[in-house]
Simulated assay, not measured.
Amino acid sequence: METSTASPLATPTSVGMRYGLLIGLVSIIISFLLNVTHLEQSPAKWLSLVVLVGGIILAQKAFRRANGEFMSYGQGLGVGMVLAAVSSALSAIFSYFYVAFIDPEMPARILEKGRADLEAKGNMSDAQIDQAMHWTAMFVQGPALVIIALVGGLIMGLIVSLITAAILKNPKPEFE
């Protein structure tokens, strides 16, 4: 009986890093364009999620192709999580620098729109709206912005990777 100790042609880390850099840069460009045009609160913000989903699928397919069309569930999950970590880190760093140096008024715009939306609904008192705005302000500025962006990106990446790895997996047969 012969056992194969050959390492895969591509590792989940190498593929995830490569695609994570690419998806991170694309996400930064999308975020920059949305922020510059003041559309950061519009439905167009979901475009970054579409890019993340597409990037994870492309990365998992590239990993499979590079490894003789085989990919275990764990490898697919690993590719997606490395991609999400790299992409989220780049996006979080960009968000911090954008708010700190390029457009420091962006958090105020977000808070203003949030207050207007809550007032338009009419189901909260002024004290409740003030409390909600206090909490929102803590999350749209400073280090909390980086943490929220990083954790949010990792959670979304995990959810997408769990689903796409289950769909795209093709494990090697055990008795071949």
Rank of each mutant, 00 (worst) to 15 (best):
R115Q: 11
A66I: 09
E69S: 13
E105P: 01
G54F: 05
L111A: 14
E105R: 10
L90A: 05
V53K: 03
G54R: 05
P107W: 08
A120Y: 03
M124L: 15
L49A: 11
A59G: 01
V79M: 02
A100H: 05
S87Q: 07
N123T: 13
R115M: 11
V50K: 04
L49Q: 10
E105Y: 09
F63V: 00
G76V: 08
A89K: 13
L52W: 09
I56K: 06
K45L: 13
M81V: 06
A89W: 03
E69Q: 15
V51P: 06
N67C: 08
F94W: 15
E105H: 04
M71F: 07
E105G: 03
A127M: 08
T37S: 07
F94Q: 06
S88G: 04
A100T: 02
M106K: 10
L58F: 08
A44L: 14
Y73N: 06
I129R: 04
R109H: 11
A44K: 03
V36M: 07
A66D: 10
L39M: 13
F63D: 03
V53R: 02
R109K: 13
D117C: 08
A84W: 01
F63I: 10
P43E: 07
V79T: 00
H38Q: 15
V79H: 04
K61M: 11
R115P: 03
F94N: 03
A92K: 03
P107L: 05
F97I: 12
V50E: 02
